[in-house]
Amino acid sequence: MTQSPDPTLLWTIIIGLAIGSFALRFAFIGLMGGRSMPPWLMRHLRYTAVAIIPALVTPLVVWPTPTGGTPSLPHLAVAAAVFALGYWTRNVLIAMGSGAIGFLLLFLFSG
């Protein structure tokens, strides 16, 4: 039997996260909205989008849920193939599509 969390604690966490999320967005949109950003900041922000997808996918490859968190060779093989294809084509959509197809084929043929 699961125990429900204390409603006061739960709402405190939700409100705190909402305020933090608003403050982070306001820092860029509200305070910097009408100003141009320095070149060094723009150079660093250019790599933010490129870093998000690997940051989301890497834990799923290294500690896959279907194996109980132990690394599996098929997951690492598909990830290596996707990395190689993405590096070779320089196209994020092709790399993501090949990853989806690779895992679909892996699921279909491994039973």
Score class of each variant (00 low, 15 high):
Met1Pro: 09
Met1Ala: 14
Ser4Lys: 12
Ser4Val: 14
Asp6Pro: 00
Asp6Ala: 13
Pro7Trp: 01
Pro7Gly: 09
Pro7Thr: 09
Pro7Gln: 02
Leu9Trp: 07
Leu9Phe: 07
Leu9Glu: 07
Thr12Asn: 07
Ile13Asp: 00
Ile14Val: 15
Ile14Thr: 06
Gly16Trp: 01
Leu17Phe: 08
Ile19Gln: 01
Ala23Thr: 14
Leu24Ile: 14
Leu24Gln: 07
Leu24Arg: 07
Phe26Leu: 15
Phe28Lys: 09
Leu31Asn: 10
Leu31His: 13
Gly33Thr: 11
Gly34Arg: 14
Ser36Asp: 12
Leu41Arg: 10
His44Asn: 10
His44Ala: 14
Tyr47Arg: 11
Thr48Ser: 11
Ile53Asp: 05
Ile53His: 03
Ile53Gln: 09
Ala55Val: 06
Ala55Pro: 03
Val57Arg: 00
Val57Gln: 01
Thr58Gly: 03
Thr58Val: 15
Leu60Asp: 08
Val61His: 02
Val62Ser: 03
Pro64Met: 07
Pro66Leu: 08
Gly68Met: 04
Thr70Ser: 12
Pro71Met: 13
Pro71Phe: 07
Ser72Val: 09
Ala79Phe: 08
Ala80Met: 12
Ala80Asp: 06
Ala81His: 01
Val82Asn: 00
Val82Cys: 06
Phe83Val: 15
Phe83Gln: 03
Phe83Glu: 03
Ala84Tyr: 04
Leu85Gly: 01
Trp88Lys: 10
Trp88Ser: 12
Thr89His: 12
Thr89Ile: 08
Met96Asn: 04
Gly97Asn: 09
Ala100Gln: 07
Ile101Gly: 02
Leu104Gln: 10
Leu105Gly: 08
Leu108Cys: 12
Phe109Cys: 11
Ser110Val: 13
